[in-house]
Computed example of a mutant assay.
Amino acid sequence: MRNVLVIGGTRYFGKRLVALLLAAGDRVTVLNRGSSAPPSGAEQLVADRNDEASLEAALGDRTFDVVIDQVCYTPVQADIARRVFADRTSRYVMTSTVEVYEYEDSPAPVPESAIDPRETAVDLELPWGDAEFLDAHYGEGKRQAEAVFASASGFPYTAVRVAHVLGGADDFTGRVTHYADRIRTGEAIAVPPLNHPATYINVDEIAAFLFWAAGEDFTGPVNAASHGPLTTQDIVAALAPGAPVTYRTVELGETSPFAFARSYGMATTRATRLGFTFSHTGDWLTRALAETVNRPATQAS
């Protein structure tokens, strides 16, 4: 039985991860600000992760076999976590994002080496505590958070760079319902002139990947994505097969979610070599979208 701490872990794929850990017989502690209760069977610690003293006080003298950090968005948060957990865990798994590759516009799937956190500059003085700034610099915040962990000598971290996640009735992002609403009302879907495909992963699969990664011993960044990149049109066709759809090209301005003016493809060679087998988007896409809009799937997937 492992002793596992999950920072966050009370919604979307985080709560699925906690369920997998509990089902495996792990002792699970969830740390958050107290606004959400953890799943039954998990212990809860209440602290503000942005407050180092609060975090230290909540942890007391606890140590963990693994820490899985679901909600590290900035280098400031990573800097606090690196100090607090330096002697408390033998493995630290950070949930990162495909958005770290936001400037790597390549038609070929991008490997982890394209962004080496050991070579990423860190600026702790940027206004990371400002919600508007953080939202506009999401990818940069994750890049710099990875860099903080990578710069710590002997800190046993891995950063899971997660593809765009699909599936589940509890998808809180509103991205799939954006499309469902426009298909229903006939409103045009805004896309860039060149609309590129991206990599995706099912909500249950990313929970399974994080569970698997927690039990491994590799370090550094690793990409997590299902095989089979998807375009906006692929998602719309799976969401409403045969439905009339209008697209509107936007030269400047806001496009629909999952409509990308650049490629967001990740190579998963490293994860495969380490022993994880990813599914194909075609195995689950229709079912996942149906779950999110709360209607029966029109075909098995």
Score class of each variant (00 low, 15 high):
residue 153 S to P: 13
residue 155 F to Y: 11
residue 156 P to A: 03
residue 156 P to E: 09
residue 157 Y to T: 05
residue 158 T to A: 14
residue 159 A to F: 05
residue 159 A to S: 07
residue 159 A to H: 00
residue 160 V to W: 02
residue 161 R to S: 02
residue 161 R to P: 03
residue 162 V to M: 14
residue 163 A to G: 05
residue 163 A to E: 00
residue 166 L to Q: 01
residue 166 L to F: 01
residue 166 L to D: 00
residue 168 G to S: 03
residue 168 G to I: 00
residue 168 G to Y: 00
residue 169 A to Q: 11
residue 169 A to R: 12
residue 169 A to T: 12
residue 170 D to P: 01
residue 171 D to F: 04
residue 172 F to S: 15
residue 172 F to L: 15
residue 172 F to M: 15
residue 174 G to Q: 09
residue 175 R to L: 08
residue 180 A to W: 14
residue 180 A to M: 13
residue 181 D to C: 09
residue 181 D to S: 12
residue 182 R to I: 07
residue 182 R to E: 06
residue 183 I to V: 15
residue 183 I to K: 11
residue 184 R to H: 13
residue 187 E to K: 11
residue 188 A to W: 10
residue 190 A to K: 14
residue 191 V to Q: 05
residue 191 V to T: 10
residue 192 P to Q: 02
residue 192 P to W: 03
residue 193 P to Y: 05
residue 195 N to C: 15
residue 196 H to Q: 12
residue 197 P to V: 14
residue 197 P to L: 09
residue 197 P to N: 07
residue 197 P to M: 06
residue 199 T to M: 08
residue 199 T to R: 08
residue 200 Y to W: 07
residue 201 I to V: 13
residue 201 I to G: 00
residue 202 N to Y: 14
residue 202 N to L: 07
residue 202 N to V: 01
residue 203 V to K: 01
residue 203 V to Q: 02
residue 204 D to H: 15
residue 205 E to D: 14
residue 207 A to W: 00
residue 207 A to I: 01
residue 207 A to Q: 04
residue 208 A to L: 04
residue 209 F to M: 13
residue 209 F to W: 12
residue 212 W to I: 11
residue 213 A to D: 02
residue 213 A to K: 02
residue 214 A to G: 14
residue 214 A to V: 04
residue 214 A to M: 08
residue 216 E to N: 14
residue 218 F to S: 04
residue 220 G to W: 06
residue 221 P to V: 05
residue 223 N to C: 05
residue 224 A to V: 08
residue 224 A to F: 03
residue 224 A to R: 04
residue 224 A to K: 04
residue 225 A to R: 04
residue 227 H to P: 05
residue 228 G to I: 10
residue 228 G to R: 05
residue 229 P to M: 00
residue 231 T to V: 09
residue 232 T to R: 02
residue 233 Q to I: 13
residue 233 Q to P: 11
residue 233 Q to T: 14
residue 233 Q to N: 12
residue 234 D to T: 12
residue 234 D to A: 12
residue 234 D to R: 13
residue 234 D to V: 11
residue 235 I to H: 01
residue 235 I to M: 07
residue 236 V to W: 03
residue 237 A to V: 08
residue 238 A to N: 10
residue 239 L to N: 03
residue 239 L to C: 08
residue 240 A to G: 07
residue 240 A to I: 07
residue 241 P to S: 01
residue 241 P to V: 00
residue 241 P to Y: 02
residue 243 A to Y: 08
residue 244 P to M: 15
residue 246 T to L: 10
residue 247 Y to Q: 07
